[in-house]
Amino acid sequence: RFFCQTNLVLAVYGITLITGLPANLLALYTFVRKVKQNATPIDVLLLSLTISDLIFLFFLPFRMKEAADMKWTLPYFLCPLSGFIFYSTIYNSTFLLTAISVERYLGVAFPIRYKLKRRPRNAVIASIIFGVVSMAHCSIVYIMQYYDHGNGTIIDPSKRNVCYENFSHEQLKVLMPVRLELFLVLFCIPFIICCFCYINFIHILSRLPNISPKKRFRAIGLALGTLLVFIICFMPYNLSHVVGFIAWSSPDWRVYALLTSTFNACMDPFIFYFSSSALRGTFKHCLKGLVKRLHLSCCRRTFSWPQLNCSMVEESTQSSNDSSR
């Protein structure tokens, strides 16, 4: 059982890291350029979400190491640090996704009034507040790891080989109410706000007569993508908080519910794609470059006179690009 669980954890973490890292790096490059040129609130929020995902992915190998060894073998200070970053970035993502939904809704519901009042600075302030609130709630990781509420003494970290597990009854008295609060405040409220904003967002766009089918498709993709992230990535893990509070112990399936949360880092780029025209342009540019390289590579392997024929392909490709311009 533990062997299968270890393989599953490593597979999910590996897929998330391999797919999420390049996609988020591409998004980071795009949004940094966009913010420098002409920053808008949505660009700031998307940049903040990208940075949050990259921080999450940076600490993911520590959890992969723990899963591979089936115990914590790294320096112990990395245990609460990795857990703190892991959970904080998850809840920070819920806040940022909610803020993006609010921004999109206000943009179509009150286009003139909101355009006059929106400021990138407000998005920066909101991102900072989201990060502080998420880290404040998830500081419970440090409290649980280092303090024994039964005898009021500090536990020697060198005697531990597990990370954020095997809590005492006194620790559960503090942990379980906090987890229930996480479910209510950091998941339910953002999820309800997202549902309200995107349902009305789609409803308003559907009534506009001059909206193009492509724009309507992107709007629906943005709404469905965000709601799917909440349902697939965040809901199972947060439901485990409720089940754990009722049973007063962590459910056995909590480890699998936590795995779905990691997919957030590789699903967010889809939201970026539907939200930002700049990212769509960067993605299409990179895709065309990749297709061109693959085409030239196949050409060199196929033709018997590679230099002659491939140079002809390069010239024809260049001329077609020049004519399209």
Rank of each mutant, 00 (worst) to 15 (best):
R160E: 11
N161Y: 11
V162R: 03
V162Q: 09
V162H: 05
V162K: 03
V162L: 01
Y164M: 01
Y164S: 00
E165S: 15
E165N: 14
E165R: 15
N166T: 05
N166F: 09
N166C: 05
F167D: 13
F167E: 10
F167N: 13
F167W: 14
F167H: 15
S168T: 15
S168Y: 12
H169S: 13
H169M: 12
H169N: 11
E170Q: 11
E170S: 11
Q171G: 11
Q171W: 09
Q171K: 14
L172D: 12
L172W: 13
L172S: 11
L172I: 10
L172C: 11
K173F: 07
K173A: 15
K173G: 13
K173C: 06
L175W: 13
L175Q: 13
M176F: 13
P177K: 13
P177Y: 09
V178Q: 08
V178L: 10
V178K: 05
V178A: 10
R179E: 13
R179L: 15
R179T: 15
L180W: 04
E181H: 03
L182Y: 00
L182F: 04
F183R: 00
F183Y: 04
F183N: 04
L184N: 10
L184A: 11
V185T: 12
L186E: 08
L186A: 11
F187I: 01
I189M: 14
I189T: 09
I189G: 11
I189P: 08
I189N: 12
P190I: 00
P190V: 00
P190Q: 01
F191E: 02
I192Q: 01
I192T: 12
I193N: 06
C194D: 02
C195N: 10
C195R: 12
F196I: 03
C197W: 06
C197S: 08
C197R: 03
C197E: 04
Y198P: 05
Y198E: 07
I199W: 06
N200I: 01
F201K: 05
F201C: 03
F201V: 06
I202D: 04
H203W: 10
H203Y: 08
I204W: 02
I204R: 01
I204L: 02
I204V: 05
L205C: 12
L205E: 13
L205V: 07
S206P: 01
S206T: 06
S206E: 15
S206M: 09
S206C: 09
R207H: 07
R207K: 13
P209A: 13
P209N: 06
P209H: 08
N210P: 00
N210Y: 08
I211W: 09
I211A: 10
S212R: 05
S212L: 06
S212W: 01
P213T: 03
K214P: 00
K214T: 08
K215G: 02
K215A: 07
K215W: 05
